[in-house]
């Protein structure tokens, strides 16, 4: 969850690791998050439809992965951080019963703009579900 204390730019150094975040992947999460992002594609809420596509079960949609990535970064940075970008690359699917564990580190800071770049990665039992970067402006 978001810590109410925001990171300040001056306290952040390249190489700083973000606290890991393990997210249990459930059918409920996949289906409800798909709907909350207005994505009604059947593969995200209907197991039979997903199996017709060759998947063992429903699989997480991209907008949810973006949302969870935001949560992971924001959980570390706090409510005063402002996102400039959130760039993700997708890998192994998230299926119910798995756990996705986010890890990340600060890879760049820029004092002039107070920008901080975070590299993030969400791994599940099949490998990397998501890798990416987020650029934040910190107070």
């Amino acid at each position: 969850m978001t810590s109410k204390n925001s990171k300040r730019f001056d306290d952040v150094r390249p190489g700083e690791a973000l606290p890991e975040l393990a997210i249990p992947i459930t059918t409920t999460l996949i289906a409800s998050a798909a709907i909350a992002t207005r994505d009604y594609f059947p593969g995200h809420h209907d197991m039979e439809a997903a199996q017709q596509l060759g998947s063992p079960h429903v699989f997480m949609n991209i907008l949810t992965t973006s949302g969870l990535s935001q949560r992971f970064v924001e959980g570390w940075a706090g409510p005063a951080a402002r996102f400039k970008d959130l760039k993700i690359k997708l890998g192994a699917p998230n299926y119910p019963g798995d756990t996705m564990t986010f890890s990340g580190e600060v890879v760049r800071t820029d004092a002039a703009s107070r920008e901080v770049e975070i590299a993030l990665k969400g791994k599940n039992s099949m490998g990397s579900h998501v890798t990416g970067t987020a650029t934040l402006v910190l107070p």
Binding site: T2, I23, A36, T64, S66, G67, L68, Q70, R71
Partner: peptide, 28 residues
């Protein structure tokens, strides 16, 4: 659903104190 509890998106009183003056949508 996402498990996001940032008051910037949820708490009108807090959001009013920010540069936005009110609630904003999560960027993602």
């Amino acid at each position: 659903v996402m498990g996001v509890d940032n008051p910037l998106y949820l708490d009108a009183d807090h959001a009013a104190t920010t540069e936005f003056g009110g609630i904003v949508a999560p960027p993602a």
